[in-house]
Structure formats: structure tokens, C-alpha cells
Computed example of a mutant assay.
Amino acid sequence: MDTLSIRHRTTYRYRCPVTFGEHRLMFRPRDSHDLRHVSSTLAISPTAAVRWRYDVFGNSIAIATFGEAAQELVFESDIVVEHYGFEGAYPPMEDYARKLPFSYAFEELPDLRRSMERHHRDPQHRLDAWVRRFLADGAGAETWQVLKAVNTAIHDEFAYAERAEEGVQTPIETLERASGTCRDFALLMMEAARTLGMAARFVTGYLFDPGQAGSPHGLRGAGATHAWAMIYLPGAGWVEFDPTNGLIGGANLIRVGVARDPAQAIPVQGTYFGAAEDFIDMAVEVEVERIGETMPAAALSPLSAPQGRRGSG
């Protein structure tokens, strides 16, 4: 179990003072058996009134409203969490789901169906053809091996390219360009799983790179917000796949928000009132550091994570 400090700063700059509409912030990690929120602070400049709510997915959302104009808008979040990330052997699956294709249990389908539907058109079946290459054994291919192969292929065969602009490439655009950001790769992984009849959802959060402060570990996506996918596997539950880094499991991943579609999990979303040319740029800085380790991860199962006192925030 690691104690991690997360510092997240988003800055918008303008050529002249502008006024701001309501802003929606998704910064606070989701409490669960493998991630415990300890404390957090949120500083906003210019001063804003903040109210909190849960969205339809149960994500914690801060709504900021402003009363004054400014040339610079800054959101600064400092969070401490206890993290029990899964890493190692694959979690056990139900026997009926070990090979493809499989069907989800009848009682789970109403809740999974929208996450199983493909969200992007593929009229020429390019994504279907790309996924079929991982089904060398045809019907009866091992579920884990297929998902692992897709996850690894995205990491190995696609170029990672940072992109500050909002929005996500469609899976077909990512296939055509053979490059993308972490959010593009997450969506490609999701839609690939959906072509195989599996439920998938998008995750936004942070990446803990143990080498970030020293020699790099080679993880892509550190220093900014990160995105990956979760796929629902009977018996194992929602399992995290990070195709940007070819990782399975949440040992390096800190969940903040989950959603059916990337547009529903934007870390900062809002408006300003002024001319389009008033906007100069946006900068995002994220630093995730280990500040304490109470016991080795192997000594404590995520299922036995202690239920301590909540911090403020």
C-alpha cells in the first residue's frame, strides 16, 4: 500500500480580462476498496463559489461559479490517497467467460447494455478487421489472451503523441493515423472490446510513475491527466487496461472518473465570455509522488484495505 500525493494545476491564459461561466471539475479520486481518499484541497483563482455533487456515474464533481473577470484562470488541487493497486496474476473469471464469445448473466445485462454498444460508426468494418487478427483461434479464443494482445498491440504499434486540444479521435482515425493520446488509445481499446460483445467504460485519472522524479520508468502519460479503459469480465469485475503503457491492473493508476463515453469524463469543462482570439493557451501540470509506504503491496490484499477516517475536502 502506497500513500501518494497528487498535485494538479490547470491554468488558462487570456490577452485581456474575461468573465467566466460555470466550470465543472473532476479532480477528486473515487473511494473504493483499492483507493482511499485521505485529504484534499482545491484552490481557484479568481475566487469562486464551489458546490459538490455526484454525476450519473457516481463521480465526485465540483461546480465552480465566478463573480469577477481575470486574465488568468487557475485550478490547483492537492490530494493525498492510500493506494492498493492490483498487479500480478489475472483475477479469476467465471468459467463460462474464459473463452470468446460469451454472454453476460441475464440479471447484469440491463446495467451493462449501454456500455456494450459500439459508440462509433465503422461502415467499412475496419475496426472489426483489426480486432479479428487477435482471434487466431477463432471461436473459443481465450478471453484474457485476446484482451492482453489488443492492449499490447496498441502500446507497441501506435505512436504516443501528446495533444492539448480537447476532444478524442474516433477509433477509425486512430487506426488510420497509427498515433494518438492516452484518451484516443483508451477509446480504441473500449470499442475493440465492444466489438467482441464486452462492456467497456472510459476512465480519467492520474498515472503514478515511480521514476517520474528520477530516472524514467518509461511510462507514457505522466505529468498530465491520464486516461485508460475498464472492461467488465464476469467473476473478475471491472478490470483496468492501460493501452498507452501496455499495462493491466491498477498498480500505477489512480481513478478519478468513470464514464460510458470520454465526453462524460472531462477533468475541466467550462466557458468564458469574450472574443475567441482572447484565449492564449492552457497548461496542465500533474505531479504524483509516493510520500509513504506502510506495508508491501503483497502483504495486503485490496479486499482487506482498512476503512479509515475520511479527510476533509
Results as ranks from 00 to 15, higher is better:
F66K: 02
Y160L: 09
P216W: 07
A229V: 08
Y54R: 10
M230S: 03
I44F: 01
L175H: 04
I280P: 02
T174Q: 06
E277F: 10
S77C: 15
I61V: 15
R290D: 01
A199M: 02
E191G: 02
A265W: 00
G246W: 03
Q269V: 01
M282R: 11
F86H: 13
Y272R: 12
L35E: 04
P234L: 07
P262T: 06
A259T: 07
V286I: 04
D55L: 09
E72M: 12
A153I: 04
T3W: 00
S45K: 03
G249T: 02
P101Y: 13
T10E: 02
P17L: 05
S5Q: 15
F241S: 12
P210K: 09
L187P: 00
S5C: 09
G249A: 08
I248A: 03
A186I: 12
H23A: 08
A192V: 00
M116Q: 10
S32E: 14
T195P: 00
D184T: 08
V50N: 01
E157N: 10
R51A: 06
Q124N: 11
H8A: 01
M189E: 12
C16K: 15
R28M: 10
Y14R: 02
A139W: 11
H155F: 06
H37Q: 09
L219C: 14
Y90G: 00
A89N: 15
P17C: 00
K148F: 05
G197M: 11
D2E: 14
Y160V: 09
V268S: 03
H23F: 15
F202P: 00
R15C: 04
D31C: 08
G197T: 14
E289M: 12
L4K: 08
Q269H: 14
E191D: 07
F279L: 15
F241V: 08
A251S: 12
A227F: 02
K148N: 12
P101H: 11
S215P: 01
E176S: 11
G237Q: 13
V56W: 04
L147V: 09
H119W: 08
L303C: 03
R201Y: 03
G270I: 06
M26R: 08
R290H: 05
R309G: 04
R290W: 05
A276H: 10
R113F: 15
A70F: 05
A251C: 10
P296L: 14
M26Q: 13
Q307S: 14
L42I: 06
E287Y: 02
P302M: 02
I248H: 02
M230L: 07
A236E: 01
S60E: 13
A49Q: 14
V131K: 03
E293H: 11
S179V: 00
D31G: 05
A200P: 05
S215L: 14
R28K: 15
R53K: 10
D281N: 12
V168F: 08
D95S: 13
V286C: 01
L187Q: 11
S32M: 11
I254Q: 00
